[in-house]
Protein backbone atom coordinates (compact mmCIF):
# COMPACT_ATOMS: atom_id res chain seq x y z
CA UNK A 1 0.00 0.00 0.00
CA UNK A 2 1.82 3.10 -1.18
CA UNK A 3 0.75 6.36 0.45
CA UNK A 4 2.50 9.36 -1.08
CA UNK A 5 2.82 12.89 0.14
CA UNK A 6 1.82 15.58 -2.32
CA UNK A 7 3.79 18.15 -0.38
CA UNK A 8 2.72 21.20 -2.48
CA UNK A 9 5.25 23.85 -3.45
CA UNK A 10 4.31 26.25 -0.67
CA UNK A 11 4.56 23.67 2.08
CA UNK A 12 7.82 22.35 0.63
CA UNK A 13 9.50 25.73 0.30
CA UNK A 14 7.92 27.89 3.00
CA UNK A 15 6.17 25.64 5.53
CA UNK A 16 8.09 22.35 5.83
CA UNK A 17 6.78 22.04 9.40
CA UNK A 18 3.28 21.33 8.06
CA UNK A 19 4.36 18.45 5.83
CA UNK A 20 6.44 17.09 8.68
CA UNK A 21 3.45 17.14 11.03
CA UNK A 22 1.42 15.15 8.50
CA UNK A 23 4.18 12.57 7.96
CA UNK A 24 4.63 12.14 11.71
CA UNK A 25 0.92 11.89 12.46
CA UNK A 26 0.36 9.28 9.76
CA UNK A 27 3.29 7.22 11.05
CA UNK A 28 1.40 6.82 14.32
CA UNK A 29 -1.18 4.80 12.37
CA UNK A 30 1.36 2.71 10.51
CA UNK A 31 1.36 4.78 7.35
CA UNK A 32 4.89 5.40 6.06
CA UNK A 33 4.49 8.13 3.46
CA UNK A 34 6.87 8.42 0.57
CA UNK A 35 7.86 11.63 -1.17
CA UNK A 36 8.12 11.21 -4.94
CA UNK A 37 10.89 13.66 -5.84
CA UNK A 38 9.69 14.71 -9.30
CA UNK A 39 6.65 16.65 -8.00
CA UNK A 40 6.77 20.45 -8.18
CA UNK A 41 3.56 22.52 -8.23
CA UNK A 42 -0.05 21.64 -9.10
CA UNK A 43 -0.11 24.35 -11.78
CA UNK A 44 -2.83 26.42 -10.21
CA UNK A 45 -1.16 29.86 -10.44
CA UNK A 46 -0.90 29.48 -14.22
CA UNK A 47 -4.25 27.70 -14.65
CA UNK A 48 -6.18 30.39 -12.79
CA UNK A 49 -4.44 33.16 -14.70
CA UNK A 50 -5.40 31.60 -18.02
CA UNK A 51 -1.96 30.21 -18.95
CA UNK A 52 -2.97 26.62 -19.48
CA UNK A 53 0.05 25.58 -21.51
CA UNK A 54 2.27 26.71 -18.64
CA UNK A 55 -0.04 25.02 -16.13
CA UNK A 56 0.31 21.72 -17.98
CA UNK A 57 4.10 21.89 -17.62
CA UNK A 58 3.75 21.91 -13.84
CA UNK A 59 0.76 19.57 -13.65
CA UNK A 60 2.59 16.85 -15.58
CA UNK A 61 5.15 16.59 -12.77
CA UNK A 62 2.31 15.83 -10.37
CA UNK A 63 0.71 13.28 -12.68
CA UNK A 64 4.07 11.57 -13.22
CA UNK A 65 5.05 11.70 -9.56
CA UNK A 66 2.05 9.79 -8.29
CA UNK A 67 1.46 7.37 -11.17
CA UNK A 68 2.12 4.31 -9.01
CA UNK A 69 0.83 5.57 -5.65
CA UNK A 70 -2.27 4.06 -4.04
CA UNK A 71 -3.16 7.13 -2.01
CA UNK A 72 -1.96 10.72 -2.40
CA UNK A 73 -2.27 13.02 0.60
CA UNK A 74 -1.76 16.79 0.58
CA UNK A 75 -1.90 19.55 3.18
CA UNK A 76 -4.04 21.69 0.87
CA UNK A 77 -7.65 21.55 -0.26
CA UNK A 78 -6.82 23.97 -3.02
CA UNK A 79 -3.93 21.99 -4.51
CA UNK A 80 -5.90 18.74 -4.24
CA UNK A 81 -8.83 20.63 -5.74
CA UNK A 82 -6.63 21.62 -8.68
CA UNK A 83 -6.29 17.92 -9.53
CA UNK A 84 -10.06 17.99 -10.12
CA UNK A 85 -9.44 20.47 -12.96
CA UNK A 86 -6.89 18.25 -14.68
CA UNK A 87 -9.50 16.48 -16.81
CA UNK A 88 -10.33 19.85 -18.38
CA UNK A 89 -6.68 20.88 -18.61
CA UNK A 90 -5.72 17.68 -20.42
CA UNK A 91 -8.90 17.09 -22.41
CA UNK A 92 -6.90 16.96 -25.66
CA UNK A 93 -4.16 14.71 -24.32
CA UNK A 94 -5.43 11.13 -24.01
CA UNK A 95 -2.37 9.85 -22.13
CA UNK A 96 -2.39 12.49 -19.42
CA UNK A 97 -6.18 12.63 -19.36
CA UNK A 98 -6.26 9.01 -18.23
CA UNK A 99 -3.60 9.71 -15.61
CA UNK A 100 -5.63 12.70 -14.45
CA UNK A 101 -8.77 10.62 -13.93
CA UNK A 102 -6.87 8.04 -11.94
CA UNK A 103 -5.11 10.62 -9.79
CA UNK A 104 -8.34 12.44 -8.98
CA UNK A 105 -9.77 9.25 -7.53
CA UNK A 106 -6.85 8.57 -5.27
CA UNK A 107 -5.99 12.03 -4.01
CA UNK A 108 -7.11 13.29 -0.64
CA UNK A 109 -6.76 16.41 1.38
CA UNK A 110 -5.19 15.59 4.77
CA UNK A 111 -8.39 15.58 6.89
CA UNK A 112 -10.29 13.63 4.21
CA UNK A 113 -7.61 10.96 4.34
CA UNK A 114 -7.57 10.84 8.11
CA UNK A 115 -11.33 10.68 8.54
CA UNK A 116 -12.50 8.74 5.49
CA UNK A 117 -9.59 6.44 4.67
CA UNK A 118 -7.99 5.74 8.04
CA UNK A 119 -11.29 6.21 9.87
CA UNK A 120 -9.58 8.26 12.57
CA UNK A 121 -11.40 11.12 14.24
CA UNK A 122 -9.93 11.03 17.75
CA UNK A 123 -6.15 11.28 17.76
CA UNK A 124 -5.99 11.51 21.51
CA UNK A 125 -4.63 15.02 21.28
CA UNK A 126 -4.72 17.62 24.01
CA UNK A 127 -4.66 21.31 23.15
CA UNK A 128 -6.04 23.59 25.88
CA UNK A 129 -6.51 26.75 23.83
CA UNK A 130 -9.20 28.89 22.29
CA UNK A 131 -9.16 28.11 18.57
CA UNK A 132 -11.08 29.37 15.57
CA UNK A 133 -11.22 27.83 12.11
CA UNK A 134 -11.15 29.37 8.62
CA UNK A 135 -12.69 26.99 6.05
CA UNK A 136 -10.72 27.66 2.89
CA UNK A 137 -12.86 28.07 -0.21
CA UNK A 138 -11.46 25.38 -2.48
CA UNK A 139 -11.30 22.69 0.18
CA UNK A 140 -14.84 23.31 1.29
CA UNK A 141 -16.42 24.14 -2.08
CA UNK A 142 -14.52 21.97 -4.57
CA UNK A 143 -13.78 19.00 -2.32
CA UNK A 144 -16.70 19.39 0.07
CA UNK A 145 -14.47 19.23 3.13
CA UNK A 146 -16.70 20.83 5.74
CA UNK A 147 -17.28 18.62 8.74
CA UNK A 148 -13.99 16.68 8.77
CA UNK A 149 -11.85 19.35 10.46
CA UNK A 150 -14.63 20.20 12.90
CA UNK A 151 -15.03 16.59 13.94
CA UNK A 152 -11.27 16.26 14.44
CA UNK A 153 -11.16 19.41 16.58
CA UNK A 154 -14.18 18.45 18.67
CA UNK A 155 -12.28 15.43 19.85
CA UNK A 156 -9.18 17.32 20.93
CA UNK A 157 -9.20 17.58 24.71
CA UNK A 158 -9.22 21.07 26.12
CA UNK A 159 -9.69 22.71 22.74
CA UNK A 160 -12.34 25.41 22.78
CA UNK A 161 -13.59 26.02 19.25
CA UNK A 162 -15.01 29.53 18.91
CA UNK A 163 -17.01 30.67 15.86
CA UNK A 164 -15.37 32.81 13.22
CA UNK A 165 -17.88 35.41 11.98
CA UNK A 166 -18.47 35.11 8.22
CA UNK A 167 -16.13 32.14 8.27
CA UNK A 168 -16.97 31.05 4.73
CA UNK A 169 -15.93 34.37 3.18
CA UNK A 170 -12.74 34.20 1.13
CA UNK A 171 -9.65 35.61 2.86
CA UNK A 172 -8.67 37.49 -0.30
CA UNK A 173 -5.73 35.34 -1.32
CA UNK A 174 -6.81 33.99 -4.71
CA UNK A 175 -3.25 33.41 -5.95
CA UNK A 176 -2.28 36.01 -8.54
CA UNK A 177 -5.44 37.91 -7.57
CA UNK A 178 -3.66 39.15 -4.43
CA UNK A 179 -0.91 40.61 -6.62
CA UNK A 180 -3.02 41.91 -9.52
CA UNK A 181 -5.88 43.27 -7.47
CA UNK A 182 -3.88 44.01 -4.37
CA UNK A 183 -6.19 46.66 -2.94
CA UNK A 184 -9.34 44.54 -3.22
CA UNK A 185 -7.42 41.61 -1.77
CA UNK A 186 -6.12 43.88 0.98
CA UNK A 187 -9.66 44.93 1.88
CA UNK A 188 -10.70 41.28 2.05
CA UNK A 189 -7.84 40.13 4.26
CA UNK A 190 -8.32 43.15 6.52
CA UNK A 191 -11.91 42.14 7.10
CA UNK A 192 -10.98 38.50 7.61
CA UNK A 193 -8.42 39.48 10.24
CA UNK A 194 -11.00 41.74 11.92
CA UNK A 195 -13.26 38.72 12.24
CA UNK A 196 -10.45 36.55 13.61
CA UNK A 197 -9.78 39.19 16.28
CA UNK A 198 -13.49 39.50 16.98
CA UNK A 199 -13.60 35.76 17.70
CA UNK A 200 -11.08 36.33 20.50
CA UNK A 201 -9.31 33.10 19.58
CA UNK A 202 -5.66 32.60 20.50
CA UNK A 203 -5.13 30.35 17.51
CA UNK A 204 -6.42 30.36 13.95
CA UNK A 205 -6.31 27.03 12.13
CA UNK A 206 -7.01 26.09 8.54
CA UNK A 207 -6.27 23.48 5.91
CA UNK A 208 -4.46 25.59 3.34
CA UNK A 209 -1.14 27.31 3.91
CA UNK A 210 -1.64 29.82 1.09
CA UNK A 211 -4.73 31.27 2.78
CA UNK A 212 -3.05 31.07 6.17
CA UNK A 213 0.07 32.81 4.84
CA UNK A 214 -2.21 35.59 3.66
CA UNK A 215 -4.07 35.96 6.96
CA UNK A 216 -1.04 35.52 9.20
CA UNK A 217 1.00 37.91 7.05
CA UNK A 218 -1.67 40.53 7.59
CA UNK A 219 -1.98 39.83 11.32
CA UNK A 220 1.79 40.20 11.66
CA UNK A 221 1.65 43.43 9.70
CA UNK A 222 -0.88 44.67 12.26
CA UNK A 223 1.27 43.32 15.05
CA UNK A 224 -1.49 41.05 16.32
CA UNK A 225 -0.23 38.05 18.27
CA UNK A 226 -2.78 35.46 17.07
CA UNK A 227 -1.02 32.21 16.28
CA UNK A 228 -1.81 30.82 12.81
CA UNK A 229 -1.28 27.17 12.01
CA UNK A 230 -2.38 24.23 9.90
CA UNK A 231 -4.68 21.78 11.66
CA UNK A 232 -2.04 19.05 11.18
CA UNK A 233 0.41 21.11 13.22
CA UNK A 234 -2.13 21.60 15.96
CA UNK A 235 -2.92 17.89 16.09
CA UNK A 236 0.75 16.94 16.12
CA UNK A 237 1.49 19.35 18.93
CA UNK A 238 -1.55 17.97 20.72
CA UNK A 239 -0.45 14.33 20.54
CA UNK A 240 3.16 15.15 21.45
CA UNK A 241 1.89 16.49 24.75
CA UNK A 242 0.29 13.22 25.77
Amino acid sequence: MKVSLFVTCISDAVYPRVAEAIARLLARYGVAVDLPPVQTCCGQPAYNSGYWQEAREAAKTILDAFADSDFVVSPSGSCTGMIHHYDKLFEDDPVYLEKARVLEQKSYEFTQFLVHVLGVTDLGAVYPHKVTYHPSCHGSRILGVKEEPLVLMERVKGLELVPLPFAEDCCGFGGTFAVKMSDISGAMVTEKADHVLESEAEVLVGLDMACLMNISGHLQYRNEPVRVMHLAELLYEGVKQT
Binding site: P16, P37, S216, G217, Y221
Partner: peptide
Protein backbone atom coordinates in the same frame (compact mmCIF):
# COMPACT_ATOMS: atom_id res chain seq x y z
CA UNK B 1 4.75 45.74 -3.99
CA UNK B 2 0.99 45.42 -3.63
CA UNK B 3 1.06 42.32 -1.44
CA UNK B 4 3.34 43.85 1.19
CA UNK B 5 1.22 46.97 1.44
CA UNK B 6 -1.08 44.81 3.56
CA UNK B 7 1.15 42.01 4.82
CA UNK B 8 4.53 40.73 5.86
CA UNK B 9 5.87 37.91 3.71
CA UNK B 10 7.50 34.90 5.36
CA UNK B 11 11.12 34.25 4.41
CA UNK B 12 12.23 30.83 3.18
CA UNK B 13 13.38 28.51 5.99
CA UNK B 14 16.92 27.09 6.10
CA UNK B 15 15.83 23.78 4.65
CA UNK B 16 12.95 22.97 2.37
CA UNK B 17 10.88 19.93 3.27
CA UNK B 18 12.56 18.02 0.50
CA UNK B 19 15.99 18.77 1.91
CA UNK B 20 14.85 17.88 5.38
Amino acid sequence: EGWNRYRHTPGLPEQSFRER
